[in-house]
Design a protein around this nucleic acid. Structure first.
Length: 473
RNA sequence: UCCCCCGUAGCUCAGCGGUAGAGCGGGCGGCUGUUAACCGCUAGGUCGUAGGUUCGAAUCCUACCGGGGGAGCCA
């Protein structure tokens, strides 16, 4: 087998060339075969290396010593190709490679290889999480997801935010944000007992430990010293949720900002979403065009309008009034004090205003203890400085609040919620020593990728989805 | 967790009480600077699993398993 010292050229870089290179020396490209069209005179092999949405067409004529080999290539094989870049004689692509040599790196038995050169259902591909990145959809998804993750860091870094890594294993519970996964080294078949129960003192940490449901409380610690911080990492919910919008393991972005109130936080959330959508559109135009064509014809227009326009803002009280006067018939009741249901959120963002909506100042009774209590509200209509960012089709994409920085009010709110203050001693200390106004939000990364790609099911925007009874890969 | 729908060839589906079908994909052959090429031939199935009803079950009933959609919870 011939070898070469020449480095591999990425398909993306070849296709981006303004003109043919001078001198036009032989290049080496490597990738996986998408499709082969062969004949008695000439064969065409389309390969993809993941660097770009587009495939590269390899032309192999009878002069090529590997012509016979190419006749046997099938979808899924990996190959190394040496050849000259030329303007394509056919339509459908600008450049192609005229092959001098083709080497088979890895075979893929066509009788067994499950991916065909045609569309598969997303449900089928979920069973093939190890091969689906080779498809157009999941290659595009991987690149857009990567671009959005980069855009998130870029947004915060440009604004001087500090990226902090909060723990994945935690002993605290962020106010029952959801059922938690227990982490233990105890022998679950024969755990040590004490006083009739499991002796947690003998567990690894000397106490019960869990996978985190949120990095918020730890991010607040850093906001109370570094002022502008964000986290971006995995979080875990052991809820038995079987929907197209929930995962047991998902990634969350959580900025936490000192000396910031809810209005400032809403501004930040709006700028943030606009930045990452603009970044996805700008850095992955081919992938976004693909999603627009095959998954949501309105996708690019919707994202561009979000990038261009201000979000609508209304208070919870205004939202309730709007719902009550809408003339719509809702399945769930609309009444001040009740939480907004999915159907209500979707009405507001899809029908009422037709763009993202930020709803603020929810009743304190339906929100978490750490959200800042509004002054000047009647006792029976107490509200907190909370906000939800609602977007069409997904519903809630961001939830956040200004935090309660006043120690006495925070303590009374915890008491109302029936929370034991002892485990939160450090959280309360932040209010005892140099407390400062601050605010933060959480953004579900997969839901944001869902929104940006038009993918209907959250299991198709993460490489290895974790859902109830599903952790194969 | 609740409600509804669906499990038939490698994939996508039809068949809905009476001898298991199509398209695509695969194999073989042909043809062509082709574009998820095209043309011909061909192989391929314990009809999700286990019970039940029936002379007879892919088809009707029950349970379980798996998948999907919606709801709740939320991000």
């Amino acid at each position: 087998m011939p070898t070469t010292k020449r480095p591999r050229t990425r398909i993306k870089d070849l296709l981006a060339l303004e003109q043919l290179p001078v001198p036009n020396d032989p290049l080496v490209v490597m990738g996986w075969v998408k499709t082969v069209r062969s004949s008695g005179a000439v064969a065409f092999v389309q390969i993809n290396d993941g660097s770009a949405f587009a495939d590269l067409q390899i032309v192999v004529d009878a002069n090529c010593p590997d012509y016979a080999l190419v006749q046997r290539l099938t979808t899924g094989c990996s190959v190394r190709v040496t050849g000259i870049l030329q303007e394509s004689l056919g339509r459908g692509q600008r450049y192609e490679i005229l092959a001098d040599a083709v080497a088979l790196l890895g075979d893929a038995d066509p009788e067994e290889y499950p991916l065909q050169k045609k569309r598969h259902t997303l449900e089928f591909l979920r069973e093939l999480a190890h091969l689906r990145p080779r498809t157009n959809t999941f290659g595009a998804m991987a690149r857009v997801r990567n671009a959005m993750a980069f855009g998130i860091h870029q947004f915060f870094q440009q604004r001087g935010f500090l990226y902090v890594q909060t723990p994945i294993i935690t002993a605290s519970d962020a106010e029952g944000a959801g059922a938690m996964f227990r982490v233990t080294t105890l022998n679950i078949n024969d755990p040590p007992t004490r006083n009739g129960g499991i002796d947690d003192g003998q567990d690894f940490f000397g106490r019960p430990a869990f996978l985190t449901v949120s990095g918020q409380l730890e991010a607040e610690i850093f906001a109370q010293s570094m002022a502008d911080v964000y986290t971006f990492g995995p979080t875990f919910r052991a809820e038995n949720s079987n929907t197209s919008r929930h995962l047991a393991e998902f990634w969350m972005v959580e900025p936490e900002v000192a000396f910031c109130d809810l209005d400032g936080l809403a501004d930040l959330a709006e700028d943030f979403l606009r930045h990452i959508f603009a970044h996805a559109l700008q850095s992955c135009p081919d992938d976004m065009a693909f999603f627009n064509r095959f998954y949501d014809k309105e996708l690019i227009a919707t994202l561009e309008s979000i990038v261009a326009a201000d979000f609508e803002r209304m208070t919870y009280t205004e939202a309730i009034a709007a719902l009550q006067s809408s003339g719509e018939r809702f399945e769930f009741p609309v009444e001040w004090g009740l939480d907004l249901q999915s159907e209500h959120e979707r009405y507001l963002t899809e029908r009422k205003v037709g763009k993202p909506v930020i709803v603020t100042d929810y009743p304190s009774s339906i929100k978490a203890f750490y959200m800042r209590l509004n002054e000047d509200t009647p006792a029976h209509r107490q509200t907190v400085r909370a906000m939800d960012v609602l977007v069409p089709r997904i519903g809630e994409i961001i939830g956040g609040s200004q935090r309660e920085e006043r120690l006495n009010i925070l303590q009374s709110r915890m008491a109302e919620a029936g929370l034991d203050q002892a485990p939160y001693w450090w959280y309360l200390d932040l209010r005892r020593y140099g407390t400062a106004p601050h605010a933060g939000f959480g953004l579900g990364f997969e839901r944001t990728v869902q929104f940006a790609t038009g993918m209907q099911n959250i299991r198709d925007v993460i490489a290895f989805p974790r859902t109830p009874r599903n952790a194969e890969f």
